[in-house]
Design a protein around this nucleic acid. Structure first.
Length: 298
DNA sequence: GGCCAGGGCATCT
DNA sequence: AGATGCCATGGC
């Protein structure tokens, strides 16, 4: 039985993994993603079993392909379909040329040249992306990471590879089993505790099929998410950005986007919805990519 | 110390 | 419909 292996991912169009690596390496309170020794490490849950994937940071240049190492704790089945999962997670299945070649305004065009090869990484679990959206609402990011850290510690889904402990993000069923008071102790607000636990219970009960969102058109997927209490325009779009990998999501109201647009487009005050709607029209149907490039500029 | 942070909802005019 | 208040906490 083999418990580790290595393979290469070939992206459609250019890839500079270092740009992604540096983009996501943001907080020392991050507990699921790991950035150390010039490796990005990420625990995945495949058919319910933990697998660790490790991706070496490159030399800062565009690469033809990306090496992915994987390791599973001994005694577990060999993970299936890893390549497919990684293609999606690393955004390698998207042809960046489609975005670069799209008719973009000069500011966005300049960003694509500045960060050529930059691709976002998806959160490989849509529920995790959804939970993170709720956790990140209206609090500074450092605090959001601490909330997540407390949650991940409390529901300990850790496993060990090479003597190092890695933490999977809790499942919907895990969080569904908590009480609001448990989250309040972790310094969630009362509202946030309700949003997160209620969402987890919806998913755990099978009343919300997050995987199915992937196959839905952007508008319909957005509508479905907006119908859930606690998910507004920002959160719903965030889930479609980082979770399902929809290409045309745009998180209206995002403070980072507001800052980036204000600076890059020389505004005197933060843009309103109408301005952003009009501005982002030229980025369609790739507003997700535009969003990540704006964030990257900060 | 005050402002604000990768918002959203309930409650008003 | 559109504006306003509120939530809770901590980083800066």
């Amino acid at each position: 039985m083999k418990y580790r292996g290595s393979f290469r991912i070939k992206a459609v169009g250019p890839y500079n993994f270092d740009l992604s690596y540096s983009f996501y390496r943001r907080s020392r309170f991050e507990t699921v993603d790991r950035f150390a020794d010039r490796y990005f490490r990420r625990p995945l849950r495949i058919d319910g079993w933990p697998v660790l994937v490790s991706i070496p940071c490159g030399d800062g240049c565009l690469t033809e392909s990306i090496r992915v190492d994987w390791a599973a704790p001994e005694g577990l089945p060999r993970p299936a379909d890893l390549r497919h999962r990684l293609m999606s997670m690393l955004y390698a299945d998207f042809d960046l040329g489609d975005f670069y070649g799209h008719k973009l305004d000069p500011v966005m065009k300049r960003l694509t040249r500045r960060f050529i090869g930059f691709r976002p990484m998806l959160t490989p679990d849509i529920f995790e992306a959804s939970a993170w959206a709720i956790i990140g609402q209206q609090v500074n990011l450092q605090f959001a990471y601490r909330l997540k850290s407390r949650l991940v510690s409390r529901i300990d889904r850790s496993f060990i590879v090479d003597g190092e402990t890695y933490y999977l993000f809790p499942t919907a069923a895990d969080i569904a089993s908590l009480d609001y008071a448990d989250l309040r102790e972790m310094r969630f607000s009362g509202r946030k505790a309700e949003y997160l636990i209620d969402l987890a219970r919806l998913v755990a009960a099978g009343d919300l099929d997050l995987e199915r969102l992937k196959e839905m058109e952007y508008d319909r997927a957005l509508e479905r998410l907006l119908s859930i209490r606690g998910l507004g325009p920002w959160s719903a779009n965030y889930i479609l950005l980082r979770g399902t990998g929809h290409r045309d999501a745009f998180p209206f109201g995002d403070s980072g986007i507001n800052h980036a647009v204000t600076r890059l487009y020389g505004l005197s005050e933060k843009p309103d919805i109408d301005y952003l709607t009009e501005l982002s029209r030229a980025w369609r149907p790739y507003r997700s990519l535009a969003t990540f490039y704006l964030w990257k500029s900060l």
